[in-house]
Amino acid sequence: MKKVKLLKIFMTILLVVSFFIIIQRGTFNDVSPQNIREFLGDYSYIAPIIYIIMFTFVPLTLFPDSALAIAGGMSFGIFWGSIYTIIGALCGGSLAYFLAKFLFKDLIAKLLKNKELFTTNKNGFILILTLRLIPLIPFDLISYGAGAFDIKYRDFFLATLIGIIPGVLVFANIGDKALDINSPAFYTSIIILIGLILSSKLLKKKIYKKGVNH
């Protein structure tokens, strides 16, 4: 038990120090999808691995997942960009889930708003799937909440895998088409994004007003 506590303290210190180093150095200041694409271009064949690693550690940086997903589409095209983004999102979501479950459970449980969504719903799969279908709800917030409130990992993983597909496809498509912003395909991708945002707003309003059905 003592070793577990010491490990938690060590991991907490390590994460806090890493976070402040990132903030102090401004690692993510002025970072854009185009910058990320250029960065990945330097890694040739291992660029997909670098991209997945970047996505895995997004929960520790507060960097917007959507911007990284757009960069994935710009770098690898809509098909492979979506595949790599889904893998990276699952890795990053799992990291946040286990950090919340084993290290910061009490802290996150206290800080999380709308915690009744996690505490009143017994069907973890439906809950996470519904929340994942709303891109306006921060991806990492859902992951941390799921870990803090003991959603079964199997339910969390499967619901995340299925629920992020629409959003990933939309953002990867924007990235892919953004290489030619004057093309009709790019404007179509923006219209699809607007549709996703509007439907997301309606679903989010419904969820927070009525709660997710058990």
Results as ranks from 00 to 15, higher is better:
Leu6Ala: 15
Leu6Pro: 09
Lys8Leu: 11
Lys8Thr: 13
Ile9Gln: 12
Ile9Trp: 14
Ile9Phe: 14
Phe10Pro: 01
Met11Ser: 15
Thr12Lys: 01
Thr12Pro: 05
Ile13Arg: 10
Leu14Phe: 12
Leu15Val: 12
Leu15Cys: 12
Val16Asn: 04
Ser18His: 05
Ser18Gln: 07
Phe19Arg: 02
Phe19Cys: 05
Phe20Ile: 15
Ile22Thr: 05
Gln24Cys: 08
Gln24Asp: 13
Arg25Pro: 01
Thr27Arg: 02
Phe28Gly: 00
Phe28Ile: 01
Phe28Pro: 00
Asn29Phe: 05
Asn29Ala: 12
Asp30Val: 00
Asp30Leu: 00
Ser32Arg: 02
Pro33Leu: 00
Pro33Phe: 00
Gln34Glu: 13
Gln34Asn: 11
Asn35His: 12
Asn35Arg: 14
Ile36Tyr: 03
Ile36Thr: 07
Glu38Ser: 08
Glu38Arg: 07
Phe39Ile: 11
Phe39Ser: 04
Leu40Met: 15
Asp42Thr: 07
Tyr43Ala: 02
Tyr43Arg: 01
Ser44Leu: 12
Ser44Phe: 07
Ser44Trp: 06
Tyr45Pro: 01
Tyr45Phe: 10
Ile46His: 10
Pro48Leu: 00
Pro48Trp: 01
Ile49Trp: 09
Ile50Asp: 04
Tyr51Cys: 01
Ile52Phe: 08
Ile53Tyr: 03
Ile53Val: 15
Ile53Cys: 12
Ile53Leu: 15
Met54Glu: 04
Met54Pro: 00
Met54Ser: 09
Val58Asn: 04
Val58Ile: 13
Val58Arg: 07
Val58His: 01
Pro59Ser: 04
Pro59Thr: 04
Pro59Asn: 10
Leu60Ile: 08
Leu60Gln: 02
Leu60Tyr: 03
Leu62His: 01
Pro64Trp: 01
Ser66Lys: 06
Ser66Ala: 14
Ser66Tyr: 13
Ser66Leu: 13
Ala67Ile: 15
Ala67Val: 14
Ala67His: 06
Ala67Trp: 11
Ala69Arg: 02
Ala69Thr: 14
Ala71Gln: 05
Ala71Ile: 00
Ala71Tyr: 03
Gly72Met: 12
Gly72His: 11
Gly72Lys: 02
Gly72Ile: 11
Gly73Ile: 04
Met74Asp: 11
Ser75Tyr: 01
Ser75Val: 08
Phe76Pro: 01
Gly77Phe: 06
Gly77Pro: 06
Gly77Ala: 06
Gly77Trp: 06
Phe79Asn: 12
Trp80Gln: 09
Trp80Ser: 09
Trp80Ala: 11
Gly81His: 01
Ser82Trp: 04
Ser82Thr: 13
Ile83His: 05
Ile83Gly: 04
Thr85Ser: 13
Thr85Cys: 14
Ile87Leu: 15
Gly88Leu: 09
Gly88Arg: 04
Gly88Ala: 06
